[in-house]
């Protein structure tokens, strides 16, 4: 035990472990603790109870859960379709231009998400940039998607694009050209090469991108608030309300716990089913 503790690796890991313990595990434990406290109390010293869980499942919170999960899933699918060709280009075709594309996509990340979303509001607003230009140029007036579900999806797709794109670029650049050429040379059609070779070999990138986007979108709030006019209430919105206006920390904590554990289960399940080592070819 002492010898184990004296290893340089263990000693080097101490600072980061303490940081993780304080900054990551600590709050998680607190959230867990609060979620079993009596409703509307503000300390961790009450008698543990399942009251919050029961009130959540007997109320209509499933609506927010379903919307969050559904919108997150749709965002992942749309981003896969949009980002696959772009990242293919960046990994295999654009050459030096790929850096420029990376810049163009990465630079907006320096601007706050809320400001970028507000920019979209100005663009989509009635008599805003899009509507106003169309009216001025063509005299047509299109129905606005602002404050509706499509606007939320637009916002999610826009905000989380880099989180799908960059893992995909890395995933696709891990696929050796020669391996694809070999499959093609052995008679496979372009689609068979895509299905049998490219997708399985790029799977680490595809998985990481999809998981990142799914988990981020699941906890998203600003897109529904700013672009969606809260046309739907996301689960993160419910959590925020519980902690603030409702002054019901235990309920908010239980909602957070349910959200964290459901995304945790999903990740666990995916990584169990899909053997990354085998994909990368380490085994």
């Amino acid at each position: 035990m002492i010898r184990w503790l004296m290893q340089p690796g263990v000693r080097a890991a101490v600072p980061i472990s303490i940081l993780l313990l304080l900054g990551f595990i600590g709050p998680l434990l607190m959230v867990t603790g609060y979620s079993f406290m009596p409703p509307r109390t503000f300390s961790l010293t009450g008698t543990p109870t399942l009251a919050n869980f029961i009130s959540i499942i007997s109320d209509s919170y499933y609506i927010s859960f379903l919307w969050s999960v559904g919108l997150a899933a749709i965002t992942v699918l749309i981003l896969l379709v949009i980002c696959y060709p772009v990242s293919y280009g960046m990994a295999k075709m654009f050459g030096p231009w790929a850096n420029l594309v990376t810049m163009i996509i990465a630079v907006p990340l320096l601007v706050s998400e809320n400001i970028r979303l507000f920019g979209w509001v100005l663009f989509l607003l009635k008599n805003g940039i899009a509507d106003g230009s169309l009216q001025y140029l063509f005299g047509i007036h299109l129905p606005s998607i602002l404050y509706k579900v499509p606007a939320i999806i637009l916002g999610l797709v826009y905000v989380y694009l880099p989180f799908m794109l960059f893992p995909l670029v890395i995933g696709l650049s891990m696929v050796p050209n020669a391996v694809k050429e070999a499959a093609f040379d052995l008679g496979a059609s372009r689609f068979q090469v895509f299905r049998e070779i490219e997708v399985p070999l790029a799977m680490p990138g595809i998985l990481i991108g999809s998981l990142l986007v799914f988990v981020l979108a699941l906890g998203s709030l600003a897109e529904s608030k700013i672009l969606g006019g809260q046309a739907v209430i996301m689960i993160a919105d419910d959590i925020e309300s519980a902690f603030t206006f409702a002054q019901n920390w235990p309920k908010g904590a239980m909602l957070s716990l349910l959200l964290i554990s459901s995304s945790g289960c999903l990740i666990f399940f995916l990584f169990k089913r899909i053997d990354l080592d085998r994909i990368i070819g380490r085994r």
């Binding site: 509001v121 009635k126 608030k225």
Partner: peptide
């Protein structure tokens, strides 16, 4: 009956001014 919900008074005023 609401067209939009927001907690941002600037966004809300903008929607009011633009006729949303």
């Amino acid at each position: 009956g609401a067209k939009l919900l927001t907690d941002d008074l600037v966004a809300m005023n903008l929607a009011l001014i633009n006729g949303e």
